[in-house]
Design a binder for these strands. Structure first.
Length: 124
DNA sequence: AACTTGACGAGGG
DNA sequence: CCCCTCGCCAAGT
């Protein structure tokens, strides 16, 4: 069997593994996820990975930018689909389409990014 | 192999 | 608070 596919997607899997831990009604930012994963990851690459996310198996809508807004820009998807989905989860957005990260940001106290590489960087 | 493109983010003005 | 610039790094051309 070709496990090359598995190997290639490992980079992305680390991101998805975290995203799947975000509870309904909460969000994480691209930068936050990049910081947790550490070397090799940046907010931009996390965004790139999320762009290719399997929308069926990953709660992609729960990853937003550091301003508390949806960065979906010009996707093939409707511009406000992400925000709408989050509103359905109970998240409130203001007139500038931004939500309060103080309220909704998930601090990921107990997540496991990778069993062999446990991050030591938590928000105390 | 070189250059461009992003679902980003911090910092300066 | 808004706008611009630059750094970041995987992927696509």
């Amino acid at each position: 069997m070709d496990n090359e596919q598995t190997n290639d997607s490992k980079y992305r899997e680390r991101v998805y593994r975290i995203v799947r831990q975000i509870p309904v009604g909460h969000v994480m930012t691209y930068g936050q996820i990049a910081e947790i994963l550490g070397e090799g990851y940046t907010p931009r690459t996390v965004g790139y990975v999320m762009h290719g996310a399997d929308t069926q198996n990953v709660p992609w809508q729960r990853v937003i930018n550091s301003q508390g807004a949806c960065s979906t820009g010009k996707l093939t998807l409707p511009i406000n689909l992400q925000q709408k989905m989050l509103e359905d989860e109970g998240i409130k957005f203001n007139e500038k389409n931004r939500c309060d990260l103080k309220t909704y940001l998930w601090l990921s106290d107990g997540f496991r990014a990778d069993e062999e590489n446990q991050p030591s960087l938590f928000c105390d």
